[in-house]
Design a protein around this nucleic acid. Structure first.
Length: 720
DNA sequence: TTAAGTATGCTTTTT
DNA sequence: GCATACTTAA
């Protein structure tokens, strides 16, 4: 059988155009993944390219795994030597390998967002910076953008204006990078940045990888940032055997530094690009695709294209209006319940929302109706406190320079090493110019006396003992030994804190996961994995990776997380102004378009049914707020949606907008806008929920941060 | 030094 | 409404 037989002519072209730069603009459900898989198989089978000369970059680990599985199952190919992974995992491998010329060793720790926060707090204290004026989240984001744009601290002012604010930012950036290196640690952005710089600054290394990766494929290219662009470009610029696949309509990560121009200007970046458009959709029926198309055409920044399908269904997408978020959850639970009674598979149901916080009410509703569910995302399994505690032990053993982790466990579980003792240990380290780890294990820690000295000594000897063991014991046994030695299971088991029940469960799950990881690696390579390999693997682990495929369950996730997935039945909830589009993205045209793309992504996940819903009032923090339907709902052609409870149907159809831009301009003409932050002399800060009128004395509905909801004439408030 | 009790601030989205 | 950060008492 010829492998091309299963593909349509356009897909075949993607597969067989192996030489030179190829740009594939692939609409949702157009067989994008399929093309990448077949192209890889084609390169190996027909072009006789060695698997280790091919690099495939996917957006998630899950996608990488699926690609591997399908290559193995469908084409009986061995994927062991093939490079398939996310940018982050590929970069991690390269950096570990090239440690000799890098400012860190291959045992580096990878710090996540929480670790970063802790570090920032510390640095703020040291630098005497007030988080009120320099919010950690914001500064962290600025620094992240610098890294994504490959701007090192030393180059900062070449690209940023010099002022009071930026002077502070650069101080923090500098201190942060210094701190990371002292801890032999990298953050996610560093993985990309150091790889790009490595390839850029060392021609011999660049040539090595260019020769190694003779054929390069990048999936979801619309969501790559500058650092990722550069890495790809450095590898492929000479041979130009580069195939990028993406869809500008599905670009939803600009807030993370992704630059849509990478895909829009691919033809300028490379010569003689073969451009291929995949516009036939094999996933959704016409009724759903029409809905998606009628929405996305309101975006001005896009390649003009319209998806089409041969699939016909008589089921219209529905729109449901509920009183509040609990009702919304219950109504969906009801629907899923009756679907299940009709022998429906729960795996084919997904609830999509804008923010993770929305998941809770659905949990409640599903528990009540006895429907199995899995939440994807939110707090990553490996970021849970109890898990991070154990991981901190492992990190210290792998990378003793990692003071961050050491301080986390020095008194966990409590062993009587308190603030004062820790301060002394740190002081000693500073004076002697040694790491905190060295300070702890130092035999001559005579700076401590009595009980404190004994406790630290006992802690140090435990660590030293495990460290020795870690060199000869595979990770799963080591893990078990540490948990046993610490008596962790008993501590949680006999605790009075009800939360510790689930913590114990999580630890058991953690042990099981470690064993599974160990077995998988052993099957793959014939060798059990050791500490460092394990640690770096789990730091790139996402929640999507821990979904239990064997358990039949409804999935709950954010629309972002749904990218690349498909389900028969898709419930899209919370379609209200302020949630979608999110209040923080409402008054910026670019961000608004990204919100629209996000909605587009959500709709196009569906194979059979789309059910939309919004509520009239929603609990936010501790107050109930009245809500308004999402402005996107007004953009749909009226006949495309079936309104379930039309009695209360209150959507006002737009007065047949001629041009989408027109309504946008009207919105900007308004002096006050929904979502704007204002301040009132008496009631303090608030957010505008509704604007009645155009000028400065429009009637405003405002939710004040104190929890009150008030209607106020515009002239009494000030825009912040 | 620690546990328990109280105040605060916080929610976009994630590799 | 929840988790974290700070305060207080033992």
């Amino acid at each position: 059988m010829n492998l091309l037989d299963n593909l349509n002519p356009t897909q075949q072209k993607v597969v067989t155009t192996t030489e030179g730069p190829v740009l594939v603009l692939a609409g949702a459900g157009s067989g994008k993944t399929r093309s990448v898989i077949y192209r890889t198989a084609y390169l190996i089978n027909h072009k006789k390219i060695k698997p280790w000369n091919i690099l495939v970059v996917t957006f998630t680990n899950k996608a990488a795994r699926e690609l591997k599985d399908r290559l193995e199952n469908t084409f009986k190919l061995s994927t062991h030597s093939l490079w398939i992974g996310t940018f982050h995992s590929v970069c991690m491998r390269i950096l570990r390998y090239e440690q000799a010329i890098l400012p860190f060793t291959s045992d580096f720790s990878i710090y996540d967002e929480n670790d970063q926060k802790v570090i920032f707090k510390k640095l703020y204290k040291k630098l005497d910076i007030d988080p009120k004026y320099f919010p950690i989240a914001k500064i962290r984001n600025i620094i992240s953008r610098q890294k994504n744009s490959l701007i090192l601290p030393k180059d900062f002012f070449e690209f940023n204006e010099r002022n009071y604010y930026s002077e502070k930012v650069i101080k923090i950036y500098e201190a942060y990078q210094k701190y990371l290196l002292e801890n032999n640690a990298l953050d996610f952005d560093d993985l990309l940045m150091y790889t790009a710089i490595l390839l850029h600054d060392n021609e011999s290394i660049r040539i090595k990888y260019e020769k190694m990766f003779q054929y390069v494929m990048i999936d979801e290219y619309q969501d790559t940032n500058y650092a990722q662009f550069k890495i790809v470009n450095l590898i492929a610029k000479n041979h130009q055997n580069l195939c990028v696949v993406g869809d500008d309509d599905q670009a939803i990560y600009s807030w993370r530094g992704a630059d849509i121009r990478n895909i829009l200007e691919f033809e300028k970046d490379y010569k003689n690009v073969v451009k291929i458009k995949l516009v036939q959709n094999y996933r959704s029926p016409k009724s759903i695709l029409n809905l998606a198309n009628s929405l996305i055409k309101f975006n001005s920044q896009r390649h003009e294209k319209e998806l089409w399908t041969e699939i016909i269904s008589n089921k219209k997408p529905t729109l449901n209006i509920l009183e509040n978020e609990n009702e919304e959850a219950r109504s969906i639970a009801d629907k899923i319940h009756s679907f299940k009674l009709k022998d429906g598979n729960l795996n084919e149901c997904v609830v999509l929302y804008r923010t993770n916080a929305q998941s809770r009410v659905f949990e409640n509703a599903f528990i009540q109706q006895n429907i199995k569910y899995q939440i994807v995302g939110g707090v990553n399994f490996y970021q849970r406190k109890e898990i991070k505690d154990i991981i901190a032990y492992l990190r210290v053993l792998a990378n003793p320079q990692d003071s961050e982790s050491l301080l986390r466990i020095i008194n966990f579980p409590t062993r009587g090493i308190g603030k004062t003792t820790i301060a002394k240990i740190i002081d000693y380290a500073t004076v002697k110019n040694i790491t905190i780890y060295e300070s702890v294990v130092s035999k001559e820690n005579h700076f401590l006396i009595g009980a404190a000295a004994k406790r630290v000594e006992s802690f140090a000897s435990k660590i030293l003992n495990w460290k020795k063991i870690s060199e000869e014991m595979p990770i799963n046994s080591l893990n078990m030994k540490i948990i046993d030695d610490l008596n962790l299971m008993d501590i949680y088991d006999f605790s009075d804190d009800p939360k510790d029940i689930s913590r114990l469960e999580n630890i058991k799950e953690f042990i099981a996961a470690t064993n599974e990881f160990s077995e998988n690696i052993e099957n793959e390579t014939g060798q059990k994995p050791f500490l460092t390999e394990y640690l770096q693997n789990i730091s790139l682990h996402t929640d999507l990776d821990s979904v239990d495929e064997n358990e039949e369950s409804v999935k709950l996730m954010t629309m972002h997380n749904a990218k690349g997935l498909e389900f028969d039945n898709v419930f899209i909830v919370g379609l209200e102004n302020g949630l979608l589009p999110h209040s923080k993205s409402m008054d910026n045209e670019k961000e608004l378009e990204e919100e629209r793309r996000l909605f587009y992504v959500a709709i196009t996940r569906a194979k059979k049914i789309v059910a939309l819903s919004y509520v009239r009032a929603r609990r936010v923090f501790d107050a109930v707020q009245r809500t308004l339907p999402s402005r996107f709902l007004m953009e749909f052609d009226d006949e495309l949606l079936e309104k379930e409870n039309h009695v209360f149907y209150e959507l006002q159809s737009p007065k047949k907008q001629k041009k989408p831009q027109k309504s946008v301009i009207l919105e900007t003409q308004k002096y006050f806008k929904v979502g704007q932050k204002i301040i009132h002399a008496k009631f303090g800060n608030g957010i505008i929920l509704n604007v009645d009128g155009i000028g400065k004395d429009a009637k405003l509905t405002i939710s004040f941060s104190k929890g009150m909801l008030k209607k106020i004439i515009g002239s009494y408030v000030k825009i912040l």
